[in-house]
Design a binder for these strands. Sequence first.
DNA 1: GCTGGTGACTTTCGATTTGCAAGTGACAAT
DNA 2: ATTGTCACTTGCAAATCGAAAGTCACCAGC
Lengths: 127, 127
Amino acid sequence: MTTDTGDGAAFRSDCSIARSLDILGDKWTLLVVRDLMWHGRHTFQALQESAERMPASILADRLRRLRAWDLVRREPYQTNPVRHAYHLTEMGRGLEPVLRQVMAWGHRNLGGGFFVPEGEEGGADPG
Amino acid sequence: MTTDTGDGAAFRSDCSIARSLDILGDKWTLLVVRDLMWHGRHTFQALQESAERMPASILADRLRRLRAWDLVRREPYQTNPVRHAYHLTEMGRGLEPVLRQVMAWGHRNLGGGFFVPEGEEGGADPG
DNA sequence: GCTGGTGACTTTCGATTTGCAAGTGACAAT
DNA sequence: ATTGTCACTTGCAAATCGAAAGTCACCAGC
Protein backbone atom coordinates (compact mmCIF):
# COMPACT_ATOMS: atom_id res chain seq x y z
CA MET A 1 0.00 0.00 0.00
CA THR A 2 2.58 2.59 -0.96
CA THR A 3 0.48 4.06 -3.72
CA ASP A 4 0.09 7.82 -3.54
CA THR A 5 -1.32 10.35 -5.96
CA GLY A 6 0.54 10.44 -9.19
CA ASP A 7 1.22 6.75 -9.32
CA GLY A 8 -1.18 4.90 -11.53
CA ALA A 9 0.42 1.48 -11.48
CA ALA A 10 -1.76 0.04 -8.73
CA PHE A 11 -5.09 0.38 -10.54
CA ARG A 12 -7.06 -2.49 -11.96
CA SER A 13 -7.52 -0.83 -15.30
CA ASP A 14 -7.37 2.45 -17.15
CA CYS A 15 -11.10 3.06 -16.70
CA SER A 16 -11.85 6.13 -14.60
CA ILE A 17 -14.76 4.40 -12.95
CA ALA A 18 -12.72 1.34 -12.02
CA ARG A 19 -9.99 3.58 -10.65
CA SER A 20 -12.44 5.58 -8.61
CA LEU A 21 -13.90 2.39 -7.21
CA ASP A 22 -10.45 1.20 -6.23
CA ILE A 23 -10.51 4.10 -3.78
CA LEU A 24 -14.18 4.68 -3.05
CA GLY A 25 -15.65 1.27 -3.70
CA ASP A 26 -16.96 0.14 -0.34
CA LYS A 27 -19.86 0.73 1.99
CA TRP A 28 -18.20 3.34 4.21
CA THR A 29 -15.73 5.60 2.45
CA LEU A 30 -18.26 7.91 0.83
CA LEU A 31 -20.10 8.25 4.13
CA VAL A 32 -16.96 9.67 5.69
CA VAL A 33 -16.68 12.08 2.78
CA ARG A 34 -20.34 12.99 3.20
CA ASP A 35 -19.89 13.78 6.89
CA LEU A 36 -16.77 15.84 6.27
CA MET A 37 -18.36 17.69 3.39
CA TRP A 38 -21.82 18.45 4.69
CA HIS A 39 -22.38 17.48 8.26
CA GLY A 40 -19.63 19.28 10.08
CA ARG A 41 -18.18 16.10 11.55
CA HIS A 42 -14.45 16.61 11.69
CA THR A 43 -13.20 14.56 14.61
CA PHE A 44 -12.84 10.83 14.96
CA GLN A 45 -15.55 10.72 17.53
CA ALA A 46 -17.98 12.90 15.62
CA LEU A 47 -17.54 10.71 12.56
CA GLN A 48 -18.11 7.62 14.63
CA GLU A 49 -21.36 8.99 15.99
CA SER A 50 -23.01 9.25 12.59
CA ALA A 51 -26.30 7.47 12.11
CA GLU A 52 -24.66 4.46 10.46
CA ARG A 53 -22.55 3.65 13.52
CA MET A 54 -19.30 2.98 11.79
CA PRO A 55 -16.96 0.68 13.75
CA ALA A 56 -13.86 2.45 15.04
CA SER A 57 -11.48 0.02 13.38
CA ILE A 58 -13.02 0.66 9.99
CA LEU A 59 -13.17 4.39 10.47
CA ALA A 60 -9.49 4.46 11.39
CA ASP A 61 -8.67 2.42 8.31
CA ARG A 62 -10.76 4.58 5.97
CA LEU A 63 -9.29 7.80 7.31
CA ARG A 64 -5.85 6.33 6.83
CA ARG A 65 -6.64 5.44 3.24
CA LEU A 66 -8.28 8.75 2.47
CA ARG A 67 -5.21 10.51 3.78
CA ALA A 68 -2.92 8.26 1.76
CA TRP A 69 -4.88 9.21 -1.37
CA ASP A 70 -4.78 12.85 -0.39
CA LEU A 71 -8.54 13.19 -0.22
CA VAL A 72 -8.39 14.10 3.44
CA ARG A 73 -5.94 16.04 5.56
CA ARG A 74 -5.46 15.71 9.31
CA GLU A 75 -4.60 18.69 11.44
CA PRO A 76 -4.16 19.11 15.17
CA TYR A 77 -6.73 21.49 16.58
CA GLN A 78 -5.25 21.50 20.06
CA THR A 79 -1.87 20.53 21.39
CA ASN A 80 -2.30 19.30 24.91
CA PRO A 81 -3.35 16.56 24.53
CA VAL A 82 -3.03 16.40 20.76
CA ARG A 83 -6.42 16.19 19.16
CA HIS A 84 -6.88 15.95 15.43
CA ALA A 85 -9.46 17.23 13.02
CA TYR A 86 -10.05 15.90 9.55
CA HIS A 87 -10.80 18.02 6.52
CA LEU A 88 -11.30 17.33 2.85
CA THR A 89 -8.62 18.40 0.42
CA GLU A 90 -9.58 19.97 -2.87
CA MET A 91 -9.54 16.53 -4.45
CA GLY A 92 -11.89 15.36 -1.75
CA ARG A 93 -14.18 18.32 -2.20
CA GLY A 94 -14.26 17.44 -5.87
CA LEU A 95 -16.46 14.50 -4.92
CA GLU A 96 -19.41 16.72 -4.16
CA PRO A 97 -21.08 16.21 -7.56
CA VAL A 98 -20.68 12.46 -7.14
CA LEU A 99 -22.28 12.62 -3.72
CA ARG A 100 -25.11 14.74 -5.06
CA GLN A 101 -25.90 12.29 -7.83
CA VAL A 102 -25.73 9.31 -5.54
CA MET A 103 -28.01 11.08 -3.10
CA ALA A 104 -30.45 12.03 -5.85
CA TRP A 105 -30.59 8.47 -7.09
CA GLY A 106 -31.09 7.04 -3.61
CA HIS A 107 -33.75 9.61 -2.92
CA ARG A 108 -35.63 8.85 -6.11
CA ASN A 109 -35.36 5.08 -5.96
CA LEU A 110 -34.83 4.04 -2.38
CA GLY A 111 -36.87 6.55 -0.46
CA GLY A 112 -33.92 7.98 1.39
CA GLY A 113 -33.76 11.49 2.78
CA PHE A 114 -32.55 14.44 0.79
CA PHE A 115 -30.04 16.88 2.15
CA VAL A 116 -29.24 20.32 0.82
CA PRO A 117 -26.11 21.84 2.38
CA GLU A 118 -26.62 25.61 2.08
CA GLY A 119 -29.92 27.36 1.40
CA GLU A 120 -30.45 26.11 -2.11
CA GLU A 121 -34.15 25.18 -2.06
CA GLY A 122 -36.40 22.42 -0.79
CA GLY A 123 -36.28 20.54 2.49
CA ALA A 124 -33.54 19.24 4.69
CA ASP A 125 -32.96 15.81 6.10
CA PRO A 126 -29.46 14.76 7.12
CA GLY A 127 -29.45 11.03 7.68
CA MET B 1 -33.67 -10.40 0.00
CA THR B 2 -37.27 -9.51 -0.67
CA THR B 3 -36.67 -5.81 -0.31
CA ASP B 4 -38.01 -3.89 -3.25
CA THR B 5 -38.50 -0.20 -3.82
CA GLY B 6 -40.76 1.22 -1.19
CA ASP B 7 -39.49 -0.91 1.66
CA GLY B 8 -36.92 0.83 3.77
CA ALA B 9 -36.53 -1.63 6.61
CA ALA B 10 -33.32 -3.29 5.44
CA PHE B 11 -31.22 -0.15 5.15
CA ARG B 12 -28.60 1.06 7.58
CA SER B 13 -30.09 4.51 7.83
CA ASP B 14 -32.44 6.94 6.20
CA CYS B 15 -29.64 8.66 4.32
CA SER B 16 -29.96 8.32 0.56
CA ILE B 17 -26.23 7.95 0.19
CA ALA B 18 -26.02 5.21 2.79
CA ARG B 19 -28.93 3.41 1.15
CA SER B 20 -27.34 3.66 -2.26
CA LEU B 21 -24.12 2.28 -0.87
CA ASP B 22 -25.98 -0.64 0.64
CA ILE B 23 -26.64 -1.66 -2.96
CA LEU B 24 -23.77 -0.19 -4.93
CA GLY B 25 -21.05 0.01 -2.31
CA ASP B 26 -18.38 -2.35 -3.55
CA LYS B 27 -15.64 -2.56 -6.14
CA TRP B 28 -17.61 -4.36 -8.85
CA THR B 29 -21.29 -3.50 -8.98
CA LEU B 30 -20.94 -0.19 -10.79
CA LEU B 31 -18.61 -1.77 -13.32
CA VAL B 32 -21.36 -4.18 -14.28
CA VAL B 33 -23.72 -1.25 -14.63
CA ARG B 34 -21.11 0.58 -16.71
CA ASP B 35 -20.74 -2.36 -19.09
CA LEU B 36 -24.47 -2.82 -19.45
CA MET B 37 -25.04 0.89 -19.93
CA TRP B 38 -22.25 1.85 -22.29
CA HIS B 39 -20.19 -1.03 -23.52
CA GLY B 40 -22.76 -3.33 -25.04
CA ARG B 41 -21.84 -6.23 -22.81
CA HIS B 42 -25.04 -8.09 -22.13
CA THR B 43 -24.10 -11.71 -21.60
CA PHE B 44 -22.37 -13.33 -18.68
CA GLN B 45 -19.34 -14.05 -20.75
CA ALA B 46 -19.10 -10.61 -22.28
CA LEU B 47 -19.28 -9.06 -18.82
CA GLN B 48 -16.59 -11.39 -17.57
CA GLU B 49 -14.28 -10.38 -20.39
CA SER B 50 -14.14 -6.74 -19.35
CA ALA B 51 -10.75 -5.25 -18.69
CA GLU B 52 -11.06 -5.70 -14.94
CA ARG B 53 -11.37 -9.49 -15.21
CA MET B 54 -14.19 -9.97 -12.77
CA PRO B 55 -14.27 -13.44 -11.21
CA ALA B 56 -17.25 -15.53 -12.32
CA SER B 57 -18.45 -16.16 -8.79
CA ILE B 58 -18.60 -12.45 -8.05
CA LEU B 59 -20.21 -11.60 -11.33
CA ALA B 60 -22.91 -14.20 -10.71
CA ASP B 61 -23.50 -12.79 -7.25
CA ARG B 62 -23.66 -9.18 -8.44
CA LEU B 63 -26.06 -9.98 -11.25
CA ARG B 64 -28.23 -11.83 -8.75
CA ARG B 65 -28.25 -8.83 -6.43
CA LEU B 66 -28.84 -6.33 -9.19
CA ARG B 67 -31.80 -8.40 -10.31
CA ALA B 68 -33.11 -8.66 -6.78
CA TRP B 69 -32.99 -4.87 -6.55
CA ASP B 70 -34.63 -4.55 -9.93
CA LEU B 71 -31.75 -2.66 -11.44
CA VAL B 72 -31.18 -5.37 -14.01
CA ARG B 73 -33.48 -7.72 -15.89
CA ARG B 74 -32.52 -11.06 -17.38
CA GLU B 75 -34.07 -12.29 -20.60
CA PRO B 76 -33.45 -15.38 -22.68
CA TYR B 77 -32.19 -14.48 -26.13
CA GLN B 78 -32.30 -18.04 -27.43
CA THR B 79 -34.12 -21.12 -26.25
CA ASN B 80 -32.07 -24.14 -27.16
CA PRO B 81 -29.92 -24.13 -25.15
CA VAL B 82 -31.25 -21.30 -22.99
CA ARG B 83 -28.92 -18.32 -23.06
CA HIS B 84 -29.58 -15.18 -21.12
CA ALA B 85 -28.95 -11.53 -21.77
CA TYR B 86 -28.87 -8.85 -19.08
CA HIS B 87 -30.29 -5.38 -19.47
CA LEU B 88 -30.68 -2.40 -17.20
CA THR B 89 -34.12 -1.50 -15.98
CA GLU B 90 -35.18 2.12 -15.83
CA MET B 91 -33.96 2.29 -12.26
CA GLY B 92 -30.63 0.95 -13.44
CA ARG B 93 -30.44 3.42 -16.29
CA GLY B 94 -31.07 6.13 -13.73
CA LEU B 95 -27.52 5.57 -12.54
CA GLU B 96 -26.04 7.17 -15.63
CA PRO B 97 -25.49 10.59 -13.98
CA VAL B 98 -23.77 8.85 -11.10
CA LEU B 99 -21.52 6.97 -13.46
CA ARG B 100 -20.74 10.17 -15.35
CA GLN B 101 -19.72 12.02 -12.21
CA VAL B 102 -17.62 9.15 -10.95
CA MET B 103 -15.95 8.93 -14.33
CA ALA B 104 -15.33 12.66 -14.44
CA TRP B 105 -13.78 12.61 -10.99
CA GLY B 106 -11.56 9.64 -11.80
CA HIS B 107 -10.51 11.25 -15.03
CA ARG B 108 -9.61 14.52 -13.36
CA ASN B 109 -7.87 13.08 -10.34
CA LEU B 110 -6.65 9.60 -11.18
CA GLY B 111 -5.69 9.91 -14.80
CA GLY B 112 -8.21 7.36 -15.99
CA GLY B 113 -9.70 7.28 -19.47
CA PHE B 114 -12.79 9.20 -20.42
CA PHE B 115 -15.62 7.59 -22.31
CA VAL B 116 -18.45 9.33 -24.10
CA PRO B 117 -21.24 6.98 -25.17
CA GLU B 118 -22.91 8.73 -28.14
CA GLY B 119 -21.36 11.50 -30.23
CA GLU B 120 -21.29 14.16 -27.57
CA GLU B 121 -17.78 15.60 -28.00
CA GLY B 122 -14.23 14.79 -27.12
CA GLY B 123 -12.38 11.50 -27.30
CA ALA B 124 -13.24 7.94 -26.55
CA ASP B 125 -11.52 5.43 -24.35
CA PRO B 126 -13.51 2.56 -22.87
CA GLY B 127 -11.57 1.06 -20.05
C1' DG C 1 -21.91 -43.15 -29.24
C1' DC C 2 -18.06 -40.57 -28.07
C1' DT C 3 -15.34 -36.61 -27.80
C1' DG C 4 -14.88 -31.76 -27.95
C1' DG C 5 -16.64 -27.08 -27.60
C1' DT C 6 -19.55 -23.18 -25.86
C1' DG C 7 -22.09 -20.49 -22.43
C1' DA C 8 -23.57 -19.83 -17.87
C1' DC C 9 -22.89 -20.59 -13.94
C1' DT C 10 -21.59 -23.20 -9.07
C1' DT C 11 -18.32 -25.16 -5.95
C1' DT C 12 -14.19 -25.32 -3.33
C1' DC C 13 -11.16 -23.32 -0.29
C1' DG C 14 -7.37 -20.34 1.33
C1' DA C 15 -6.78 -15.36 1.93
C1' DT C 16 -8.59 -11.07 3.10
C1' DT C 17 -11.90 -7.96 5.20
C1' DT C 18 -15.53 -6.89 8.40
C1' DG C 19 -17.27 -5.56 12.66
C1' DC C 20 -18.07 -6.10 17.69
C1' DA C 21 -15.88 -5.61 22.00
C1' DA C 22 -12.29 -4.55 24.74
C1' DG C 23 -7.88 -2.45 25.53
C1' DT C 24 -4.27 1.35 25.31
C1' DG C 25 -1.94 5.85 25.86
C1' DA C 26 -1.98 10.77 26.54
C1' DC C 27 -3.57 14.12 29.15
C1' DA C 28 -7.15 16.99 32.34
C1' DA C 29 -9.97 17.34 36.13
C1' DT C 30 -11.45 15.99 40.85
C1' DA D 1 -5.35 8.21 43.05
C1' DT D 2 -9.28 7.78 40.39
C1' DT D 3 -12.21 9.01 36.84
C1' DG D 4 -13.16 10.87 32.27
C1' DT D 5 -12.32 12.10 27.34
C1' DC D 6 -10.47 11.41 22.84
C1' DA D 7 -8.28 8.83 19.39
C1' DC D 8 -7.22 5.17 18.27
C1' DT D 9 -5.36 -0.21 18.31
C1' DT D 10 -5.90 -5.12 19.15
C1' DG D 11 -8.22 -9.68 19.21
C1' DC D 12 -10.95 -12.66 17.09
C1' DA D 13 -15.07 -14.94 14.99
C1' DA D 14 -17.72 -14.47 11.04
C1' DA D 15 -18.50 -13.02 6.45
C1' DT D 16 -16.77 -12.02 1.98
C1' DC D 17 -13.47 -12.27 -1.74
C1' DG D 18 -11.39 -14.33 -5.54
C1' DA D 19 -8.63 -17.92 -8.32
C1' DA D 20 -9.24 -22.31 -10.15
C1' DA D 21 -11.75 -26.03 -11.17
C1' DG D 22 -16.05 -28.34 -11.77
C1' DT D 23 -20.95 -28.81 -13.38
C1' DC D 24 -24.87 -28.80 -16.50
C1' DA D 25 -27.23 -28.19 -20.85
C1' DC D 26 -26.82 -28.46 -25.36
C1' DC D 27 -24.84 -28.70 -30.21
C1' DA D 28 -21.35 -30.30 -33.79
C1' DG D 29 -18.34 -33.50 -35.83
C1' DC D 30 -16.61 -38.13 -36.43
